[in-house]
Structure formats: C-alpha cells, structure tokens
C-alpha cells in the first residue's frame, strides 16, 4: 500500500487565557484525520467549531496539547509535527507542507515575484529558474506583469490572494493546506485554482481545505470531514 500522507490522531487543543484569570477554552478533543495521496479532504462545520484551529495545528502554527500529527516526508521518512522541534518544523514547512491562507503576511519591500519564488529558492533551486517559474504561475493566475516587480502590500485583496496561491502552489509539496483558497477571486481565477488543485492531486499530493464556496468544494473534494463544536460534541 502506498500509505497516507497525513495521519493525525487524538488531537486535543485548548487555550488558557492567563490575562483573563486563566480561563480555559477547549477547542478540539481527540480529533483525527487521515489523508491519502491524491486525496482532497474538505473540513466543514460551523464557524468557531475548530476548522481553523485544526488547520493551524496541521501547519505547526499552533502546538497540540495531546495527540500526534504524522507526516510522510518526500524522503519517505515520517515526522510527528506535534512533537517535532522547531528546526524540524521549519524543515517540514520547506519540504513537506504547502500552505495557502486567506491572509498574506506581507514582507515590506519584497516584490511579488520574489515572494512566490521564495519556497523554490529555499529548496535550493537556482534563482533565475525559480523566478521564471514564479512568473509563469503568476501569469497563469492572471496577475499582470507590471505587478510582478512590486511588493504586494499595495495590492487589492484579490491580487494578494493570487500571490498567496502562487506561493503555495509553486513547489510540489506532498501536503497542501488550503484555507479559503478561492475567497475574493473572480470566476476565471477560481477555475485556475480548481485546475491547480487537480494537478496537485494528480501528482499524488494530499490536500486539506476549508472551502466556503460549496460549488468549489464539491468539485475538488473527495470527502468532507465534519469538525463539530466541542461543547455539542461533549
């Protein structure tokens, strides 16, 4: 068997707000998720149910209180993101986990083209080749050439979103995390994203996404996993 790309089990996550008298907010308890190669899994559930928290756990942005997040790396080895030391998490983000959020964290003064090419350069690709590929992908996402050399800080929401998508899809990550990838896109660009997701699946990547656009969700997702609010589930 080819085996999973992602296997998360027993994931528990809550927050203790020390500034508010130590209030404890439980969000996930004993959550599990497995993603096979070529599979796209959509997370659903009401707002505040923990979809975003789960996505952040899978990206390593939040630390799990309990449980494991096993990832199969491109070299065939397995890492547990839940317990990996920071340097290993950074390595996983470079080689294993691709991520498209709805918010681009803008780095001052860095042009869009460089933002998109960065993951390739980080993997050791020659700069010129990386920039060429970045240019091609931005064109495919219909971002005009005149914007490629500008920092995205001044871009519209849709333009920023396309830079973000290009940065996420530029490298062949085994696992792709998509947080509202088609928000603020027009119909034509939505189709491009659907095609990109299809290509990622075809090369054997596993994808986990939150899709508010149910039409898009139904076209790309193999299955839908419900994330239930903890209070109701408990």
């Amino acid at each position: 068997m080819t085996g999973w790309i992602l296997r998360a089990e027993g994931l528990t996550k809550g927050f203790t707000l020390h500034l508010q008298g130590g209030t404890r907010i439980p969000v996930l308890r004993d959550a599990a998720l497995t993603v096979e190669p070529g599979e796209c899994v959509a997370l659903s559930g009401p707002s505040g149910a923990g979809k975003s928290t789960l996505m952040r756990l899978l990206q390593g942005n939040y630390g799990a209180d309990a449980g494991s997040i096993l990832l199969r790396r491109p070299d065939g080895g397995v890492s547990d993101l839940a317990t990996a030391p920071p340097r290993e998490v950074n390595a996983l983000r470079r080689d294993t986990i691709g991520h498209v959020s709805q918010f681009l964290r803008v780095i001052p003064r860095v042009p869009a083209l460089e933002v998109v090419a960065a993951p390739l350069i980080a993997r050791g690709m020659a700069r010129e080749e990386a920039l060429d590929r970045a240019r091609a992908l931005l064109r495919r996402l219909n971002l005009p050439d005149r914007l490629h050399g500008l920092p995205p800080a001044t871009f519209s929401g849709g333009e920023q979103q396309r830079v973000n998508l290009a940065r996420g899809f530029i490298a062949p990550f085994p696992l792709m995390l998509l947080d509202e990838p088609t928000a603020s896109l027009d119909a034509a660009n939505r189709e491009v994203v659907i095609a990109l997701i299809g290509e990622a699946k075809a090369r054997g990547a596993g994808l986990v996404g939150i899709f508010h656009d149910l039409d898009v969700r139904d076209r790309v997702a193999h299955r839908v996993v419900e994330v239930a609010p903890l209070r109701e589930a408990a």
């Binding site: 927050f15 020390h18 500034l19 390593g60 942005n61 939040y62 630390g63 920071p86 998490v89 950074n90």
Partner: peptide, 21 residues
C-alpha cells in the same frame, strides 16, 4: 521558547501572552 510564529500566535506562558497582547 519555540518556533517564532507558534510562540507569538499560540503563547503559553502568562508573560508571553502579556507581551504579545
């Protein structure tokens, strides 16, 4: 201590929470 974005987005220690907030 830890990964920069995790410490800043998911701070555990009361002092870190104060610092971030």
């Amino acid at each position: 201590e830890g990964l920069t974005d995790r410490v800043l987005d998911d701070p555990r220690h009361p002092y870190t929470q104060l610092l971030v907030s």
